[in-house]
Amino acid sequence: MGEAFTLLGFGPEGWGHALLTAGLTTLAVSACAFACGLVLGTLCAWAKIAGPAALRRAADIYGVVLRGIPDLLVIYLFYFGGRQIVTAIANQFGHTGPVEISGFVAGSLAIGLISGAAQAEVLRGAFHAIPSGTLEAARVTGMRRWTMFRRIIAPQALRTALPGLGNQWQSVIKESALVSVTGLVETLRAVSVAANSTELPFLFFLAGGAIYLAITTVSGLVFRIAEWRAMRGQPAMRVGG
């Protein structure tokens, strides 16, 4: 037991610092991925609701493909192929030579891409849950589209979407563990290295599990509070999917 404390601690023989840094990397990758997913998801939700036919079709295909491929393969494809795509774009822009794309960037983008497909569905559902009356009222008062989006649609939809987005954030954290296959030292990679080095896999994988559990639990609470605040003063509303 004492040995476990030494190994997980912050002393010279302890892996505490490495695990702490790795935990923060997991948070950083997840945050970037979630932001990517939110942007993509919003664009896709818009394309599906109000976009031109071609864009709607593109958004549909994106959703079907991303939900049909294992996350691990999406990350591999992004890790190995992402650079070529980005380089091709950069070269069009007048850039010569390759553009670096690190494990961090590849991982965040790949998970963002996966999460974007799911977030699009959450946001679309939230949009449809907006009572059509409020939209009509806004239109009647002569609101411009952007004003309407900002003042009517976004606040209402976001409130309805919060639980779904919270779930997506939890998924993103768990998916971020897969980025370890690219060699990026996030939580899972760090505990694997420690497990191999000390030959104590149980201790370190358990510690890794605890780190993820801590992150998901705390951020779950944050989302719960956000939901509660968003719902304040609102009549109880059933959220339809």
Partner: peptide, 24 residues
């Protein structure tokens, strides 16, 4: 389309912090 690529390229430059290594 070239405008789009231009925009995407600029975005990519911002995101990836282009460190152009000249090929020649």
């Amino acid at each position: 389309s070239s405008f789009l690529t231009l925009g995407l390229g600029a975005a990519a430059g911002l995101v990836f912090g282009t460190a152009p290594r000249s090929a020649s």
